[in-house]
Amino acid sequence: MNSVSIDKNEKTVSMQPKYSPVKEFWKNFRKQKVAFIASVFVLLLILVAILAPYIAPFDPYKPNYDALLEPPSKSHLAGTDEYGRDILSRLIMGTRISLSVSFASVFLGMILGTILGLMSGYFGGWLDRIIMRSSDVLFSFPDLLLAIAIVAILGPGLNNVIIAVTVFGIPSFARLVRGATLEAKENTYVEAAKSMGAPHRRIMYKHIFPETVSSLIIFVTMRIGTAILAASSLSFLGLGASPETPEWGVMLSTGRDYLGTASHVVIVPGIAIFLTVLAFNLIGDGLRDVLDPKTKND
C-alpha cells in the first residue's frame, strides 16, 4: 500500500470535447419538431411586436367611415371593423400589447414567486407555513375570479391587468419552486456548502436556484399562454384595455355584436389568441421533454 505513489491522472479526460450545457440543450430541442415550429412562430410574433408600427399597413386607430365592416380583400387583408379600422393593423399592434402584458406579468410573477418559494422551501418552519397557507388562499379562488377581483379593486387599465395577472401567478411559481427547493436542499453539496460556512443567500442562489431553473423555464412558457388568455379575458370583460385600444380581447369584445353579419371581426383576433396560446403551450411541452429528467424516454 505504501509504495503506491500519487499518480497525476493527467490524460484521462483530455480526449473528450468540451462539455457545454447550451449545445446539449440545443441538440435535443431541435429534435422536438412541433415545439421547434411553435418557437419559430413565437419568434415571428415577437418580431412583429417589435416592428409593429413599421409593418402595420394602416393606422390602427384611424376610423374610415367609407369602409365599415368590410370583409377581407386585397386592400384590407383581414377586413375592417365597425369603425372601418384595418383589422390586420390592429392585430399587429395588438401583438405588441398582448405579448408585453403577458411577458411582464409572467416575469414579475416568476421573480416574486421564486423568491418566496426558495425561502419557503429552504428555511421551512413558520415562514414556510405562512407562505404556503397564503398561497393556498389565493389558489382557492378560481383564477380569473381573483384577477377580476384585483382589477375591480384597482380599477380597469392595462397596468392593473399586469398586476392582477402577476398576483395570480405568484402562488403557482412559489409552489413549484418550493418543491424543487425541498428536493435540491437534500443534496450533499448543499451540506458541503453549509460546512464551509456559506451564508444562506449564497446557498440559495448558487446551489439551489440553478436546480429549479429547468422547471421554471418550462412553467414560464406555459404560463405566458395562460397570461395572454387571462389578459384578453379581462379586456373582453371591459376590465382591461380601453375600448379603442387594439388589444385582442378588446377586439373580440367590441366585435361580438357583429358575429352574425361580419364574423371576420371576431374570428381574426380569436385565431390570433388561439394560435399564440397554443404555440406557447407546445413550446412548454417540448421544453419539458428536453429538460425534465423524469420524463426522458431514452
Binding site: N187, T188, Y189, E191, A192, S195, M196, K206, H207
Partner: peptide, 13 residues
C-alpha cells in the same frame, strides 16, 4: 474545520 464527504458524486455541485 473542513469536511470531506463520502460520496464524491453527490458532494460536488
Amino acid at each position: 474545520v473542513q469536511m470531506i464527504f463520502q460520496d464524491p458524486y453527490a458532494s460536488l455541485n
